[in-house]
Simulated scan of single mutants.
Amino acid sequence: MSPFSILYKWVMQLRNHLYDIEHKAVFHFDTKIISVGNLSMGGTGKTPFVEYILRYLIEKGYSNKVATLSRGYGRKSKGFRIANDEDSPKTIGDEPFQIYQKFRKAAVVSVGEDRVLAIPSLIYEHPENEVIVLDDAYQHRSVKPNFSVLLTDFNSLFYEDYVLPSGTLRESRKGAKRADIVIVTKCPPNLGGIEQEKIKNEIVRYIDKAVFFTSVKYEKTVATKEGQEVGKKIVLVTGIAQAQKFKEHLINEGFNVVKHYDFADHHNFTSKEIEEIDGFANLENADIITTEKDWVRLICFPELPKSFQSRLFYIPIMVQFLDDEKSFHQILEDSIIRA
């Protein structure tokens, strides 16, 4: 590691130590708190996993008794905010807006940079909520969760990574010990038992808790304009952390990707970019496919051309456990529902 990485590591270890000995205040809440996060900078699939937990809790009878709280990365607003029908990705962030679009009838979706201030506000405004799911809150030590989920990407496992700036870790690998469970995300669907055991053996060097393996399940293509059918010739538009796997999936499904507009994560599209993409797609007589997170930003773009809308499709993704899904449910229920 570089000297900067070593310094950063020491600073984070000191910070964590101060929380461990409660020299820094740690707040506990009567409402059950589930924290979903990671050690790295991003791209581990937190939002799909938050959606997975929401969906499961709602199926278990927590409809209108569960809420989510995110920072709302990339939003133009500040402070605590509960999502409503007037909101957009600009006011609450793209990922919270995506969650709101799916779960607004069964869950409260909120954003707030300071979880310590946001959680009491959320409880005050919605006292009926029994569970709050925190998105990307693993490093928010000022809140003590009842159940902490640590995600690590199969393609960038935390035990092979280094702290910033040499690697992508926000803190030392030893930070994994705070988790109650570890989920290895984005695994190949055919990952074998021998390879799983090798990964588990490395993880238990840092945390002796249950380890589960999940993959990304791509759903059917969804049209922006109802009734439209997607063609095989497409323009791919992405603004996510790791777009290559998504592109590979489309190619494997038989799509001809004539051009890939690959933007940075949480990219805010400009009029010039929209015009360029629209013009190229029209010229090539190609449809436009994007991710669900990018789609919620695109459809909220002011005066999105009708030609763009008519060609625009997205593919939702779901979390799929490779095995032992019922065991994960049991641990979740024992820690939250039955606690």
Rank of each mutant, 00 (worst) to 15 (best):
Leu18Gly: 05
Thr68Val: 05
Ile277Asn: 00
Arg311Glu: 07
Ala286Gly: 01
Ile331Thr: 14
His23Leu: 12
Cys187Ala: 02
Tyr138Phe: 15
Val184Ser: 05
Gly239Thr: 02
Lys102Gly: 09
Glu253Ile: 04
Ile299Pro: 04
Ala83Met: 05
His17Thr: 15
Lys306Thr: 12
Met1Asp: 15
Ile21Arg: 12
Gly74Asn: 04
Pro3Ala: 07
Ile289Glu: 02
Glu226Phe: 10
Tyr138Met: 11
Tyr261Ser: 03
Ile288Met: 01
Tyr73Asn: 05
His329Arg: 05
Asn129Tyr: 11
Pro302Gly: 05
Pro89Trp: 06
His249Glu: 15
Lys200Trp: 08
Ala241Phe: 07
Lys174Leu: 06
Arg178Gly: 04
Ile199Ala: 02
Pro3Phe: 14
Phe246Pro: 10
Thr238Arg: 00
Ile317Asn: 03
Pro48Ile: 02
Gly112Trp: 08
Ser172Val: 01
Gln228Ser: 09
Lys24Glu: 06
Ile315Met: 10
Phe4Asp: 13
Thr44Phe: 03
His267Asn: 03
Lys200Cys: 11
His249Arg: 14
Asp294Cys: 05
Leu157Ser: 10
Asn146Lys: 03
Ile34Pro: 12
Lys24Ile: 10
Gln13Glu: 15
Arg173Leu: 03
Gln244Asn: 13
Leu7Tyr: 04
Phe246Tyr: 11
Ala223Trp: 06
Glu273Thr: 07
Glu59Gly: 09
His28Gln: 15
Asp180Lys: 01
Ser77His: 09
